[in-house]
Structure formats: C-alpha cells, structure tokens
Simulated scan of single mutants.
Amino acid sequence: MALERHPPPLIMVAPTGARKGKGDHPRLPLSIQEIRDETVACASAGADALHLHVRDQSGRHSLDPGRYKEAIAEVHGALPDFPIQITTESAGVFDVEQQLACLRDLRPKAASISIREVARDAALAARIYGTCSDNGTSVQHILYDLDDWTQLLAWQEKGVVKADQADVIFVLGRYGPPKAAKPSDLDSLTHLFPQLPGRVMICAFGPSEHDVLCAASAYGADLRVGFENNIYTEDGERAESNATNVAALKAALVFRTQGLLQ
C-alpha cells in the first residue's frame, strides 16, 4: 500500500545522457556551456541536483576527468552549492578499469555506478567501491533489474560494497530494444524500498515518465527526470526543454499530493 504523506522528493535532472544528440533534440545540452545554462534553468524550475554527463570534442560520451572538472567548475560558477553527481556509465565504450580511473583521478563528491557494469570485471569491484570510500565519493548504485539487486546484496554481504554506500536508483524501461516505462513497472520493486537503508531513486524511459515518477513518489522515492531518459511530453510531443520537463513534473507532483490529501 502506498503511503500518502512523504517529504517532497529530491528531483535530480539528467539533461544530457550518453547517447542522444542534437538530431534527437536541438536543445539537448552537449557543450559545457550548454550544460551550465540548462542546469541553471532546471534549478530555477525546481531541480535539486544534477546528474552530469560530459561529451568530448566530437560530442561523444566521455569519462575524461578534465572535462568533468571543467563542467563542474562552470556549473558551480553559476550555482555554487548545487549538488552534482557524475556518471560512470560505460555506454558500451568504457571498461571497468577506465571507470575506476575516472573515479580515482576525479575524486567526485557523488557518482552513479552500475552494478551490472562493475560485474563485467568483478575482480575490480572492491577497488571501485574502496576508492569511492577513500575519496569521500557518495555512491548511488544503478539497478536495472532484480538480478542487479541480488548482486548488490551479495557484495554488501562480502563487504565489497561499504555499509554507507546504500543509495540506489532503479531504472525502468530501456534504450535498446526500446521499452517505455509504465507505472505498473513499480509493482515488482516497491516491496524492496523498506529494506533499503539508503535513499531510493527512480528514473523512467518514455512519455509516461512523469506518471511513473509521480507513482514512485507515493512510496517515498526520489526522482530523476530529463532528456537522458525522455524527450517527450505525456502527449507524445517533443518537450521544449529539460527545464520545462522539470517544471511539469513539479506541477504534477503538487497536483497529485493535493489529490491524495483531500
């Protein structure tokens, strides 16, 4: 049963992602300056944090620490205290050693790390999570299905994942083959939420993104929204910008909360 009263969810915006380009949406922020400006707009629209991807000179997904440092400095130049989480997503390009090198050299305050991707080279798992612990990097585990959840539990049991590395994000839907998320996708997950000692976040692919996120908020989950997962409105039209999507989600959450509490 969904609880009816929760603190407002944290809203993290993921404006870029690793795969889309200007052909998918002309306002997809790719350059560091575009990412800065879009983050400022999203913060004004109600976003609480940034999930940051950077691109190289050719617009391809990058884990280059120098690019990350430049982007973080630009965003913090405009929004000094705005929380930034980097991605270590491989996107089919980077191996676990390269992901580890990014974490080691950048020493970010926060990073999302896919359980499934680390498991490609499980011998490096302890170094991945140990490096984050040593550097004070807050970890959010990316979980795509219950197999990832089982792997996380196993690594927690062995001490590979540290006790304070407890935050997770469940990804609903997928890029390929394309699958749009729907609210019923939460049915197999919500019983896990009370078992998790950290924060739970949800992101969702496709035009039902906001319906899914509003449903997740009723269970106390934090939310990630943005063009990384969805560039459409609920009507199937291309959204104007990340910032308008953030504003629309905020409005939907207010509407839902008022309806639940009446």
Rank of each mutant, 00 (worst) to 15 (best):
S44A: 15
K69R: 15
R104L: 07
S184T: 11
P9N: 08
G226S: 11
P26D: 02
D134F: 02
I11A: 03
D211W: 12
V171E: 07
P29F: 07
P178C: 06
A14S: 13
V160P: 02
I113K: 00
A119I: 07
D81L: 14
D121M: 15
R238W: 04
H25C: 10
V212E: 10
A216M: 04
E38W: 06
S208M: 12
D134V: 09
P194H: 14
V118F: 00
D81G: 08
V225M: 14
R5A: 15
D145T: 02
S90N: 07
A126C: 09
E234R: 15
A154M: 11
A123G: 10
R60K: 12
N242L: 06
P183H: 09
E34H: 08
R127I: 07
K158F: 06
L50F: 02
T150M: 15
A101S: 06
E157N: 12
K182I: 10
D185L: 14
K20R: 15
A204Y: 00
L10Y: 01
S217F: 10
E97W: 08
A216I: 04
R107S: 03
V40W: 04
D167R: 03
I128R: 02
L28D: 05
G226N: 09
D105T: 02
V139D: 04
A110G: 03
I84Y: 00
N230Q: 13
A111N: 00
K20Y: 11
V54C: 06
S188C: 13
G136F: 02
M1Y: 00
G206T: 06
Q33N: 12
V13G: 00
V168I: 13
L103C: 02
V225R: 07
Q57V: 12
H25V: 14
V225S: 08
L106G: 01
D56A: 14
I231C: 09
H61Y: 09
E234G: 12
A215R: 13
A119R: 14
F193R: 08
Y175K: 14
V225E: 10
